[in-house]
Design a protein around this nucleic acid. Sequence first.
DNA 1: TTTAAAGTACGCAATTAGCGAATTACATTT
DNA 2: AAATGTAATTCGCTAATTGCGTACTTTAAA
Lengths: 110, 110
Amino acid sequence: MNLDRLSELRKKKNWSLQDTADRLGIAKSTYAGYESGYRRPSFEALIMLADLFGTSCDDLLGRHFDKQMELTERGSTKLTVDQRELTEKEISGAVAFIRVTRQMEEEQVL
Amino acid sequence: MNLDRLSELRKKKNWSLQDTADRLGIAKSTYAGYESGYRRPSFEALIMLADLFGTSCDDLLGRHFDKQMELTERGSTKLTVDQRELTEKEISGAVAFIRVTRQMEEEQVL
DNA sequence: TTTAAAGTACGCAATTAGCGAATTACATTT
DNA sequence: AAATGTAATTCGCTAATTGCGTACTTTAAA
């Protein structure tokens, strides 16, 4: 359970250990400990890390679980097409489209 | 930073503290500590909890960060409509539908 | 070669997790 | 109502862990 991605994420930003620690408001040695696997962050620190690097705690913890998401109950996830966020109207339209598609698919079989 | 959702998730499954602890392979008092906020799980335990309850670590940690997701690059997230998983064909159909919708919207304005 | 910054490692003090055991709350049966 | 069994809560103890400062090593630049 090492936070293997930290080093990669930090280097992608071109930050030193000190830079990163400063941004988090913790000691350099503390942050360095996270990267090396010598120490692990508290939950608070983990969340700060996820915020700082713009990723999820699951990602930092190396947990990539398959998530299922009902299109009409997306919670806080924003969907995009061509980098443009979908409006509620577009989503309900797409859902209707899917239902019709399925309906036609079934009728064709009968 | 309490794991407030645990109690809710456990009760939804109709499990006792003992049941849940057994499933996790930890002591009842340990699990009870998580729920009450008296103790917190290790990362390993947090992941076991997320696995057991079928949710994310972020969710358990009360971190609901807005995520953006391009429809054609969902990664490991499975989308559903009426509880039924979308096929690739349905997704590309929906994307096409969205694009057409937008196109028509624009033309109408002009 | 000197200097400064980056990265690594570790001792110490303080906090904390995990467990068992004891206690309290709740429900069901007699 | 009393008794019984299960569920939930709390806490002392021990072992383990965190976070920091400090020191050491490595790298890079002047």
